[in-house]
Design a binder for these strands. Structure first.
Lengths: 138, 138
DNA sequence: CAGCAATTGTTTAATCGGAAACTGTATATA
DNA sequence: TATATACAGTTTCCGATTAAACAATTGCTG
């Protein structure tokens, strides 16, 4: 059977799509991981580090340091869990919520542009497929 | 209109899918970028750094250092372009070709497993959609 | 309940990545 | 042809990521 070329490989296609989109967002002033972190916290505040790392597919040491920086910037804060003192529960600050709101707008605008030019029905289908794909491979 | 949740955002879904797949390949002993680089060179040897960086969505300084490491390991080599001495043309060494072959096998096996469990027709459609999506956003 | 194992998260040391400045070469313009 | 401008890569400096070791707390088992 014939050898597959690079753009027939899912791993390559995902890397390319991810990097291009992530770069474009960076250019809009949005750090993808910071935004995703704040967004998760806005949807379910109080998550411990471990769950957060799972939700974002970050490893724990990386997350610890990302959180350190965001705590410095007062975007999020840590609350030790009284029931299990190993755990640290994370929350979004007011400042974080404000920044999230502004970044939400930029992300939505940018994705709207991208999805429009790609075709909205196709974009919707792509997202649905990616969602179920992620469930499969996790 | 209602606020979109994180998994309705393409940027998040792509980041998740990419990271999970990339991690699983790392666990199989395949560095995604190194593999992609070798694969590009096997398909079109002699590409200059700039084109390579484009093909892989890497920025030039990052690519320079990735290539430095791979030259150390004798997987690839540089050849200055005599027609334009600013350019450096990259080639895959025999050792690189051997390593590529072995890694191709692991990538193909892993993706086959993943695509089987996801459903092969859907996987094919997903790849096609990603390919045209990338064309759109680049 | 004493001691050992598992868990949750952080720290450390080394590697890697990115933005900006820099080197060398080619091209355009006067 | 001299000077300026654009182009191709690399280097530098700093911030970010990773794997491995570590600390603290909880849970299990004899």
């Amino acid at each position: 059977m014939a050898e597959r070329s690079l753009n027939e490989h899912l791993s390559h296609l995902l890397a390319q799509a991810n990097r291009h989109l992530s770069r474009q967002l960076t250019a809009e002033g949005v750090s993808l991981d910071q935004w995703r972190l704040m967004k998760v916290l806005s949807e379910s505040g109080g998550l411990p580090m471990g769950k957060l790392a799972e939700e974002l597919a970050l490893n724990l040491p990386t997350l610890t340091k990302l959180v350190d920086r965001m705590v410095q910037d007062a975007l999020v804060y840590r609350v030790p869990d009284p029931a299990d003192r190993r755990k640290v529960r994370m929350f979004l600050s007011d400042k974080g919520a404000a920044m999230l709101a502004s970044q939400n707008k930029r992300v939505e605008e940018h994705e709207a542009k991208v999805e429009d030019s790609y075709g909205n029905e196709d974009a919707q289908r792509l997202k649905t497929m990616l969602e179920s794909f992620i469930k499969q491979i996790v």
